[in-house]
Nucleic acid binder design. Sequence first.
DNA 1: ATTTAGTTACTGACTGGTCAGTAATTTAGA
DNA 2: TCTAAATTACTGACCAGTCAGTAACTAAAT
Lengths: 215, 215
Amino acid sequence: MAETRPAPRRRRKEARPQELTAAALSLFVEKGFAATRLDDIAERAGVSKGTLYLYFDSKDALFKAVIQEGIVPALHAGEVLLDEYDDPLELLRAILLGWWERIGSTELGGIPKLMMSEARNFPDVALYYEQEVLQRGTALLRKAVARGVDRGVFRQVDPEAICSVLIAPLVYRAMWRHSFGPCCGQETDVAQYLNTYFDLILNGLLAPAPGGDAQ
Amino acid sequence: MAETRPAPRRRRKEARPQELTAAALSLFVEKGFAATRLDDIAERAGVSKGTLYLYFDSKDALFKAVIQEGIVPALHAGEVLLDEYDDPLELLRAILLGWWERIGSTELGGIPKLMMSEARNFPDVALYYEQEVLQRGTALLRKAVARGVDRGVFRQVDPEAICSVLIAPLVYRAMWRHSFGPCCGQETDVAQYLNTYFDLILNGLLAPAPGGDAQ
DNA sequence: ATTTAGTTACTGACTGGTCAGTAATTTAGA
DNA sequence: TCTAAATTACTGACCAGTCAGTAACTAAAT
């Protein structure tokens, strides 16, 4: 049928949950969970507060939905890269740059900040997030690094410990965008930051070229 | 022995502000600013809520005091290192390791998490923090890196952009300790993390030995 | 040395506003 | 019409901030 209605009518059962979690995410990231009022979330989504309770049982339930719905889909995209790339160097770049482009530089980049802030207030969500997002992400990175070490492309490093070190500058920058960024002066150039970042870690990882020149 | 006083009410005008900001810091870091009740802060400090208002005008004022008192003293310690060390490599290690030992691994390590979470709710404090703490810290790091680049010990890198990249893994780890750490499984070994971290960044920074072996 | 008058650090019950959650009512769509 | 989506008006718990009162200390006067 004519499913693409141009004029959004007032009753939209299908689209509401997404609209509400999107509004909630941006406000949770901006103000924090406790300081965000449900009235504000509803207003941003273009509905009234009562409508919120048609789709979510409580403010806590809304928080959980925001986290679950936000990140999980993005993870799968990274995992397929393992098969798409063979060269460890290109694979690592693709994973890290992919994370930045799909998450860090988008609205989703607020989730790490939000989750970091609220982990201790929602231990069950934190545990879920740690296992389903962070562990899986770490495992992905670890495989990429391990592949490079095995082939002698990367130096001998501890694949377990290196993962947090590698991802930290990207997550840190993403958090910044959602905290100090809007308050303080203009952000430094992203491209320059990424260049310097890759330059540092790749030089730090690459084994000295055995025979001839590298790159 | 009438020693069993029900509530030993002690008068400690001098020590109170410190005790109150210390209690406030740990609770703000744990629960966030909005979710922390003044009654809880007072209780942890061993006083009543009324006493809080003898020393701080408002909850906001208490927040500001927590930030100001917490970090500024620790910064000076780093700045003197510039003159204590001549060798850029040792200087950089001393700065970064010093940050971890003085801040990251202590209770003060909660301040970056707190400030990151609340920056947008306290733009004036965020601006103060950004200028008086982050800018100064960055400037310190930048000088150390620039010295290394000038002397040819480090490769040509952008001293401006590299600073955030260098400090991020330490800050990230410090934040972790105060968010996921208490919720999720045991932390990975800190020493191993630091070793891997220094191994990566120093290999990433060091210029290839020009003639033969260095040092 | 004791009493007593004055000062100050501290307490905890109270208030007024805010906000999560609910129930009654309205309105859109079949 | 009849159902379901959405709104509006409401409630009650919670909490920052207040203030009248109390305990602890100090010092002047005896």
